[in-house]
């Protein structure tokens, strides 16, 4: 069901990631201001964009679940949020490393982009205890969907609020004027973003396939146990 197209997607992900790495280290020029440290940008920023996109996608899938009542949309939403949290851990660690190399500090509390991402990350960390504290599967799916929609709406609001903030110490990459990236850096960034997006979708489909197979196995075991209780137990 979910495994359709997984193999070509995985191959495309590996090839695009390899291409992105080649562009990062052999094509993109060194940044005049930050030098070699700026290479962190090509992993940190795409990871942040895809993580935030995953949170929003989780909210959209949760809307589909509440509208249709189909539990598969809840599963899709859960896996998207789960993967975005994993990427979020990566964003916070790589961002911290970059901050240390560029600004001399592991964390800067008066930097709106850093703190807002941390707020979004911590907000989504609440999703797990909320979801798994409810035993009834229907209620669990419904409550999780409501949380995913509310938190998903908060992500773009948070993004706009940060853009409106006065302190602009964090570099702007994507803007209405085209940002400040030269052509080679822009191409490298876009390929890195594509690779990160493909990686997210591949791992999302992989986890969905695993969870679907696991659920089918449980159903099969129950049916067999009904037929031959002693054999399966």
């Amino acid at each position: 069901m979910y495994s359709k197209g997984l193999k070509p997607l995985a191959i495309a992900t590996v090839l695009t990631t390899a291409g992105a790495l080649a562009l990062v280290f052999f094509y993109a020029p060194l940044d005049a201001d930050q030098g070699f440290v700026q290479k962190i940008f090509y992993v940190h920023v795409p990871m942040a964009i895809v993580a935030l996109g995953g949170f929003v996608a989780g909210g959209i899938m949760a809307i589909k679940h509440l509208r249709s009542g189909d539990p598969s949309w809840d599963l899709r939403s859960y896996v998207a949020i789960h993967q975005s949290i994993i990427l979020g851990v990566g964003v916070l660690i790589t961002g911290s490393i970059w901050a240390r190399a560029s600004w001399g500090h592991w964390w800067v509390w008066d930097e709106p982009v850093l703190v807002s991402f941390l707020v979004v990350f911590l907000l989504y960390c609440v999703y797990y205890p909320l979801r798994f504290s409810i035993e009834d599967p229907d209620r669990q799916a419904r409550y999780s969907s409501v949380f995913a929609i509310t938190a998903g709406a908060f992500v773009p609001l948070n993004f706009v609020a940060v853009r409106l903030a006065e302190a602009y110490t964090h570099p702007r990459v994507l803007s209405q004027t085209g940002g400040s990236l030269p052509g080679e850096m822009r191409l490298t960034f876009l390929v890195s973003l594509l690779a990160m997006g493909l990686l997210f979708v591949t791992l999302w489909k992989l986890e969905l396939t695993s969870k679907h197979a696991s659920a089918q196995l449980r159903r099969l075991k129950r049916r067999l146990a009904d037929r031959r209780p002693a054999a399966v137990a």
Binding site: F36, V37, I40, I86, G90, I93, I97, W98
Partner: peptide
């Protein structure tokens, strides 16, 4: 900007974190 030998360990650290995850 940090010299290449010092910047290298930060860049390597960031990419190692990503691939380890």
């Amino acid at each position: 900007a940090l010299p290449l030998d010092e910047a290298g360990k930060y860049v390597a650290g960031a990419y190692v974190v990503f691939f380890t995850l």
